[in-house]
Simulated scan of single mutants.
Amino acid sequence: MSTARKLRLGPLPRTEIVKLSFPCSAGLKADLDRYAAQHAQIYGEAVDAVALIPHMLEAFMERDRGFRATSHKR
């Protein structure tokens, strides 16, 4: 597998965090773990799936036109 391609989620910024817990399917967890492994290979910093989830959700929400249309920017 080639890791020369960039992933949609780039290097992770340092931010203040609030802890949340949620259930997910075993398949989703496996995909998140694979994504985290690719991210670590491309950007040279070990990261686990838990660290990626908030950034993925934030990116998803920023691109959701329906949500943006009814929400105020932070």
Results as ranks from 00 to 15, higher is better:
K6A: 12
D33F: 00
V50F: 00
D31W: 09
G66V: 04
R5K: 13
H39C: 06
Q41S: 14
M61S: 01
I17T: 14
E58W: 03
A69Y: 09
D33V: 00
G66S: 06
K19P: 03
M1S: 07
A46L: 06
L28Q: 10
V47H: 04
K6M: 09
G27Q: 13
R63Y: 12
G44W: 11
P23K: 15
A30M: 00
D31T: 08
T3F: 14
C24Y: 05
S71M: 09
L12N: 06
T3E: 14
A26K: 07
A59K: 10
R5F: 11
A46Q: 07
A4E: 09
Q38C: 07
V50T: 08
L52V: 01
R74Y: 07
D48H: 00
K73E: 15
T15P: 04
L28Y: 10
I17L: 11
D64M: 00
R8F: 14
A37N: 10
H39N: 10
L52Y: 01
R65K: 13
L20S: 12
R68M: 08
A51S: 09
D64L: 00
A40L: 05
S25G: 12
R8H: 14
L9M: 12
P23G: 12
E45P: 00
L12I: 11
M56N: 04
L32I: 02
L12R: 03
S2D: 10
G66P: 02
M56Y: 05
P11L: 11
L57P: 06
A37P: 10
